[in-house]
Simulated assay, not measured.
Amino acid sequence: MEIFPKLNKQLNEPFYVQQYNYFRHEIEGSEFNPGMHLPSIRYLANELKVSNTTVKMAYLQLMARPITCFLKRHFQKLIDSIS
């Protein structure tokens, strides 16, 4: 199962904040099960028709929050690819 935020251009909220809020809600609501992976930065940016930087910003915001161990390991792979 893939999870994708739906971005609303009419909101007065940047896309990266919308993505962050979506993923935070999915993680905190236990919709994101162990073993699931976030989409890659490039893939998600392409699907949402936004820049890679927008997705990176959302992922970096998520990394700043205390999250479960399996997500931290996955985020470390993402941050290594950002650098």
Rank of each mutant, 00 (worst) to 15 (best):
I3C: 09
I3W: 00
F4D: 00
F4P: 04
P5V: 03
K6Q: 04
N8F: 03
K9P: 09
P14W: 01
F15S: 12
F15P: 15
Y16H: 11
V17L: 03
Y20E: 02
N21E: 06
N21P: 04
Y22E: 01
Y22L: 02
F23D: 00
F23H: 00
H25N: 15
E28C: 05
G29I: 02
G29F: 00
S30M: 08
S30Q: 10
S30R: 08
E31T: 03
E31I: 04
F32A: 05
N33G: 10
P34S: 12
G35A: 11
G35E: 07
G35K: 06
M36T: 14
H37L: 10
L38T: 11
L38Q: 12
P39D: 02
S40D: 13
I41Y: 02
Y43L: 05
L44N: 01
A45Y: 02
E47P: 02
L48I: 07
L48S: 06
L48Q: 10
L48K: 02
L48E: 06
V50F: 02
V50D: 01
V50P: 05
V50E: 00
V50T: 00
S51A: 13
N52V: 08
T54E: 05
T54N: 04
T54K: 01
V55S: 07
V55C: 08
M57I: 04
A58R: 00
A58E: 03
Q61D: 14
Q61N: 12
Q61A: 13
L62C: 06
M63Q: 14
M63V: 06
M63H: 14
A64E: 09
R65T: 01
R65M: 12
P66D: 05
I67Q: 09
I67V: 11
T68C: 05
L71E: 10
L71A: 12
K72Y: 05
K72R: 10
H74G: 13
H74Y: 11
H74S: 11
H74R: 15
F75I: 02
Q76Y: 12
L78I: 15
S81A: 07
